[in-house]
């Protein structure tokens, strides 16, 4: 590898226009990237990491179990999130943003803020199952989310919703 030396800083702060379309090459692969290996294992450059083991561990296909095995690590067992102001993990319980099923699909597939994407970590089946569970169990949105919904959102490729602590 050739270490890239940093370019010099601009002398004056630039005027910033957000014209560039965010890069979502990873999402384009969503339909096929159903590997069990974690995105964290392919950072592009060598992070400190455990080695070949635990990222290949199998995750359930059942919605509640996916929630317990993956999501509750951050969103907590009661889905109420936590933390302190300025460093919050959003609640999923009673979260109005989940009324629109596309919203959690986008966030789970693409990540947002500190939350990584789970496209490539979980299968589309697992993602559909867990979103169905979270919307139905911790909220009052009983209509199921399907793999077809995920395919539809992936094809439309919408931007990640712009908010820092949605759900609060």
């Amino acid at each position: 590898m050739t270490p890239a030396l940093p370019p010099p800083d601009p002398v004056e702060p630039k005027e910033y226009a957000m014209t560039r379309k965010p890069h979502f090459a990873a999402l384009a692969l969503a339909g096929m990237a159903l590997v069990t290996c974690a995105t964290q294992a392919t950072p592009g450059f060598a992070q400190d990491r455990p080695g070949p083991g635990g990222s290949t561990v199998e995750v359930s296909n059942q919605g509640q179990e996916v929630y317990e095995q993956i999501c509750q690590a951050c969103h907590m067992a009661d889905a109420k999130g936590g933390g302190e102001p300025g460093a919050m993990i959003p609640a999923l319980a009673g979260n109005k943003n989940l009324a629109d099923k596309d919203y959690p699909i986008i966030v789970v597939m693409k990540g947002r803020g500190g939350m990584p994407w789970f496209n490539g970590v979980l299968t589309k089946e697992q993602i559909a199952a867990v979103i169905t569970y979270v919307r139905g169990h911790f909220n009052a949105y009983p209509d199921p989310v399907t793999v077809a919904d995920i395919d539809r959102v992936v094809a439309a490729d919408p931007p990640v919703p712009e908010c820092n602590t949605c759900g609060h």
């Binding site: 069990t36 974690a38 964290q40 294992a41 990491r49 455990p50 990222s55 561990v57 095995q69 690590a73």
Partner: peptide, 9 residues
């Protein structure tokens, strides 16, 4: 010392 799914579990 896991990353990935094992770490979330």
């Amino acid at each position: 010392y896991p990353f990935g799914a094992g770490a979330y579990m």
